[in-house]
Design a protein around this nucleic acid. Structure first.
Lengths: 199, 199
DNA sequence: CCTACCGATCGGTAGG
DNA sequence: CCTACCGATCGGTAGG
């Protein structure tokens, strides 16, 4: 991995942890072990580094999208697998979810464009599948297809981004934190599933 | 309203919009129309201002909590009103939701404590009501009570915090943005309700 | 990729 | 001795 990629990876982690404004170029350079000016050689400004980080996250998304779509449209589990696949994608690297949750708040204009380009076509396609399910009676008639899909995605992003904080608040006994996290994500999947299908 | 309160109100708005690290004391002082040093007279440090802002949000929460609990535990609509009340509380001042969404990411330790003190007792109480509903058969047996309540709260906070960004991504026709927002919040309420009750 | 810097602004404190 | 501020400036660090 060359320095350019190392810088991007370090920036992703730090931006996800402390936010764009909370991270100095010097802090990123220190982690990588280069001078701050080396960083500015690869990325001419802090803002260009932000965009590289964000583009990289959506690039992962585009590469993973086909697998997620396939899980939803083929086989017998169909839509039940949607939430599982989303949870898998974001859980495999929680910084992705944290970064997106932050950028939604910090950078709504850029995110609106990126959502429009990377999420919207897929969201409309899933909504169409839901409408078909409603016609044949397998999916509840009162579901708002586009809105439902958006809620499930936001719920997954928000939960994964804040999973350790939330699971602490859930703990009643002294259960292992990853067991509580699994329990919470399981209820997420149940919630999404049972709000969609006719019993 | 004295200067101390004006500063807190301005800081709340700016922290919600751009985040703690993204707002300088000078920027807050400029909005209020005082010198930065006046701000530091009322709040000895930026960190103390953050805590005052956060405490104020949770103070509102504590004052509103009884009304929300009453909506849930009395009358015939019972739990259906929970989401409505939560949406009402956060929608009445979106900066509240934005601030909480940010602090969950920026300041997880403080938020864990504040959730533990202000949310947890209430969450356990609601979970108990859900368990009673499960006994009498009105609420689905597979609901995880504590986890469910946490999901609903997080879903409301995340949606209200990002409502304008999300509604833009939902828009298919040229519908008015507040109509799209209402539609999206209506589906949120339906999702929460239909995942809880036996049909 | 680094050394040597800049205009400006950061959070916080001085005396009055 | 107090509350409620001010203009000026502190030592450091920001992005570039």
């Amino acid at each position: 991995m060359d320095n350019s990629a190392q810088i991007r990876v370090a920036a992703t982690k730090l931006f996800a942890l402390r936010g764009y404004e909370g991270v100095s170029l010097q802090a990123i350079a220190d982690v990588v072990g280069v001078a701050k000016q080396t960083l500015l050689y690869h990325y001419p400004s802090k803002e260009s580094l932000r965009r590289a980080v964000l583009n990289n996250v959506f690039e992962h998304w585009r590469r993973t999208l086909p697998a997620i779509l396939q899980a939803v449209t083929s086989g017998k589990r169909r839509f039940s697998a949607l939430t599982d696949e989303l949870v898998r994608f974001f859980s495999s690297d929680r910084d992705r979810a944290r970064l997106l949750a932050r950028e939604l708040l910090d950078n709504p204009e850029d995110m609106q464009r990126l959502i429009g380009e990377n999420l919207r076509p897929w969201l409309l396609l899933l909504a169409e599948y839901i409408r078909e399910g409603q016609k044949v009676g397998s999916i509840r008639a009162d579901v708002d297809p586009e809105s439902y899909v958006l809620h499930v995605i936001l719920l997954v992003v928000a939960n994964v981004a804040n999973l350790s904080t939330l699971s602490m608040s859930l703990d009643t006994s002294g259960a292992a934190s990853d067991a509580i996290e699994r329990r919470h994500l399981k209820e997420l999947a149940r919630l999404a599933r049972s709000a969609l299908f006719v019993r």
